[in-house]
Simulated scan of single mutants.
Amino acid sequence: MTTPETMIGTVSPQALTESRLQLHYAVQYIAATGAALAEPLPDHSHTSFGWNPALEAFVGSTIPATQPFQVAVEPISLTLILVADQNDTIASLPLHGKTMREGLDWLQQALAKLGADASKIVFLDYPPNDFPDHPLAHDAAFDASPGFALRELADTYIITDQLLQTIITTNENASAIHIWPHHLDIATLITLPDTKNGHPLTVGIGFSPGDASYPEPYWYVSPYPYPDIANLPTLEGQAFWHTQHWVGAVLRSSQLSENATAETQQQQVGTFLNAALNASITLLKSEASAGV
């Protein structure tokens, strides 16, 4: 397992939030292309993307065209990339200093050369008040500085992707790992063989770079149907149960050991995810069997 390059928690919350919003808008090019040109899937995962360790970038679905391609975003420099087979770069555009519209114009022109109907690509609409507003939505230009904040964000996705890859190899009912454009969270969903009131028992495991629940990065493990909060077991370390609007075990980035190395931070996150997963499975099965 590759150790991340930087410690988590070294960047100020303000800088990290701004970089997170820049990244959140940058990946909308991946989602828009997937929504317009990829084969539609019932769970909308054709608009999602994954982490590509070889490219060190977020990479979307393969799009059929005269020359098949994928749309990618390199997070540290906020560079929009078109990728062919074998991770070969077809074309790229640094988004720094460009507006969302300028990036879309470039993307449409570049994809038309590959034989794709690029006129179909439009940015996704999200429910009102459910996607972060930002000057980028109002013709401001991308700003890829400070790079160290984007580097820390990238490392959190690298850490989480590696840990989730391990989890899905040991849980046969785990979904593929997706990064979702709506909330920029990376997650897998484990479906258990039991049901509760006709609903399948599931556990979502993932990472959010920050949202309305917590303005800082955090890892979560969420059992569903949501269990009775009176039955929630004690979690070890600094982890706790979130119970407002959704129920899940949470470990915030600020709760990672201050004196740890990058490697021990990764181990701390892995210990949390696995312990919370086991606790969630036990809790769901217990309530289902008891008819709670």
Results as ranks from 00 to 15, higher is better:
212 A>V: 10
143 D>V: 01
172 E>S: 14
98 K>L: 12
126 Y>F: 15
251 L>V: 09
153 L>Y: 10
55 L>C: 10
3 T>F: 02
275 A>N: 11
114 L>R: 04
66 T>L: 13
133 D>Q: 15
71 V>H: 00
229 I>Y: 09
22 Q>Y: 02
204 G>Y: 07
254 S>G: 14
237 G>M: 01
188 T>W: 00
82 L>D: 09
115 G>Y: 03
150 L>V: 00
290 A>K: 15
72 A>H: 01
156 T>K: 10
120 K>T: 06
57 A>F: 00
228 D>C: 11
146 P>N: 09
212 A>L: 12
101 R>I: 00
123 F>S: 04
38 A>I: 01
100 M>H: 02
78 L>C: 08
118 A>Y: 01
59 V>M: 11
70 Q>P: 04
85 D>L: 00
9 G>F: 02
16 L>R: 15
109 Q>K: 12
27 V>R: 05
3 T>I: 12
144 A>F: 04
45 S>I: 05
10 T>M: 13
115 G>W: 02
154 A>C: 08
66 T>S: 14
226 Y>A: 13
244 Q>V: 13
172 E>F: 04
284 L>H: 08
148 F>T: 08
157 Y>K: 02
203 V>I: 13
201 L>M: 13
31 A>D: 01
174 A>D: 03
173 N>R: 15
224 Y>P: 08
119 S>F: 00
26 A>F: 03
265 Q>I: 00
25 Y>W: 14
46 H>A: 07
125 D>R: 09
210 G>F: 05
180 W>K: 14
222 S>D: 05
244 Q>S: 13
247 V>L: 09
148 F>E: 12
120 K>L: 15
254 S>I: 01
250 V>M: 06
35 A>G: 10
247 V>K: 08
119 S>Q: 11
140 A>C: 02
62 T>C: 01
219 W>S: 12
93 L>F: 07
165 Q>P: 10
253 S>A: 15
43 D>V: 01
226 Y>Q: 09
238 Q>W: 04
20 R>G: 11
154 A>W: 11
176 A>V: 04
83 V>I: 15
156 T>F: 03
78 L>D: 04
97 G>W: 06
45 S>R: 13
13 P>F: 06
275 A>G: 05
211 D>A: 05
240 F>I: 01
214 Y>D: 10
47 T>M: 14
156 T>W: 08
241 W>I: 01
82 L>G: 09
172 E>G: 07
106 W>S: 08
237 G>V: 02
190 I>A: 09
197 N>G: 06
3 T>L: 06
253 S>T: 04
135 P>W: 08
42 P>T: 05
261 T>E: 07
105 D>Y: 04
114 L>E: 02
131 F>N: 14
168 I>K: 15
41 L>C: 07
231 N>K: 14
72 A>E: 03
216 E>F: 02
161 D>K: 14
52 N>E: 15
276 A>S: 12
30 I>M: 01
